[in-house]
Design a protein around this nucleic acid. Sequence first.
DNA 1: GTGAAAGCGCTAACAG
DNA 2: CTGTTAGCGCTTTCAC
Lengths: 345, 345
Amino acid sequence: MAVTLKEIAKQAGVSPSTASHAIRGIHPGKRALSGKTIQKVREVAERLGYRPNLLAAGLARNKTFSVGVLVATLRGNFYERILEGITEVMHPNFTPLLAIHNYQPDRERKEIEVFIGKHVDGIIAAYSGDPETMAIYREIRDVHKMPLVLVDRGIPQFKSYVVRSDHYMSTYIATRELGRLGHKNIIFALAGRETESTKTLMDGFNGAISELGLNNTADIFYKKTQSWTIHEMKSFAENIIDYIGNRKPQTTALLLQADWLAYEVLSVCQDRNIRVPEDLSVMGIEDCDPSSLSFISLSTVKVELNEVGRRAADLLIKLINGEKPDDQPLVIKPSVILRKTTRQL
Amino acid sequence: MAVTLKEIAKQAGVSPSTASHAIRGIHPGKRALSGKTIQKVREVAERLGYRPNLLAAGLARNKTFSVGVLVATLRGNFYERILEGITEVMHPNFTPLLAIHNYQPDRERKEIEVFIGKHVDGIIAAYSGDPETMAIYREIRDVHKMPLVLVDRGIPQFKSYVVRSDHYMSTYIATRELGRLGHKNIIFALAGRETESTKTLMDGFNGAISELGLNNTADIFYKKTQSWTIHEMKSFAENIIDYIGNRKPQTTALLLQADWLAYEVLSVCQDRNIRVPEDLSVMGIEDCDPSSLSFISLSTVKVELNEVGRRAADLLIKLINGEKPDDQPLVIKPSVILRKTTRQL
DNA sequence: GTGAAAGCGCTAACAG
DNA sequence: CTGTTAGCGCTTTCAC
């Protein structure tokens, strides 16, 4: 059995409550404790290797100093970076409980239930997009009144705090940059479900295209798919290059929805002897780790996912402390990084 | 305030203890509860959206259903995959508390202290290699008697459970494979501190080289460094290629300590017009995600990090349940994957 | 079959 | 300045 406060108190010849105060350096009434007592208690605690039982403290104070963090997956850089940002800010005041739902609604619900049972002080979650699981988020907020921050996407018709990267801006600035480089025949290729985020990406692209006056030469290549496996990405990359091959006039710039898709496109280009950037400029979105490798050197839009994590954590801590932050979604601005897969026309 | 057991009991017209038994489906004495009572209690619990307070349960039973997981970093695929394996196995019985030490001894110690304070049921940790922090691991084991499993590396002179990939085998099989492909002038390049794992990697290489009878044509290029930043990796890659350039007879195969180092080497080769694999076969170790991209297609040694995580979690659960597993370190076997950066001579 | 009572380790009034 | 007391919500003997 671990050494308890009671034991410390006994050995220091004080009461448990005094010991508690001494250790935490807290004033019970108006005045402080005597320095002597504090010294004594702390010395005994030190000697016995006392570690307060945070469970008991949590039960008594109705606070656990832990937060639930639910992400979709660990694969790829995406949630990894968000998680990094979160742990950075949470440390050392809150411990993150980690859960992964892998886009399985059932799992998503269960993990949240665990968080509730563990009485975390707050929750940061990546909503899977599944309508089924909306109820559990509602329960967090309405029944348990736990602070909740969503990352990357909000839940339709559900007013909640959300921190995300600016999807509109990412395609907008990428496209604008391609325009600046002199490209007119620009294609934006993306696949996935018809979600709001898909739509926003398209809007950003179209916004820039209109400003550039390229409505007649630029276009979107969209493929509706349910999931996003590696294999599908590969064949989608082929589809894109096929599409571009048949298109007149010659497409000179290609914007892809994600860096990993861009890598696949680069692969296809290599197989077909399409030179990048001489024949085709290629641009991704996200700035994954491999993009900066000098033999890839992908031009891309840097999405500040660490920052998304940090801001989400900041916001959650505010909510936990009872502060009332702005109601507006927190949107993190992306920036363009030009490397070697794009060129001036 | 959340709905409590007491409340359920009251509404179901039974005592709290009966409610507790009914909900958990547990027999208090010899006989079971009446089906009627169970139905009633569960129905009320359901209706009120009862979520047991795991904190209180933990306090009463001296069990928290959570485990501490301390990793070095989230960057790169390494710990990400281990973590994935761990969460897979832990779910839904234990919740992982996540902590990252970034190789900072102070941080390492503090995070462990938090785990102790939270009374986790067990700990899985990646020891940073810092001698200073050994004491805290000793405390986990000897003072708090918490189950402890180390991943990837053990602590010298410290008997504990460790699960890791087989470092010896990874260089051994890689080298043997290069030999099979007809290579004689093989270089194994690595950098880092003079740790046991560094030594083991060299041993594996030397073991294969001896078997192949290549002691006169193969060699190790080792650079002693403290850390492993991206920038250092880049310049180390240059050093390697410089070294090979001056070496007679011509080196035909290069084995690198890690995939990321191999990527940097591929970059340098491209810059210097060294064709891979025509002029030089290149092989990495780990099988990171980018390695399988078709325009990288790195030949490498697949290290089963998911499996390391799963086995570590299995082992920890056994320890938590009071089982006594084998004392031998659990070593996960790697396997060679030949892609396009190596060729038959 | 079910309930009363004690207690897990800590905190927070409040009284001295 | 310090101690007493009463819980936090649940589990677990042990009676009934």
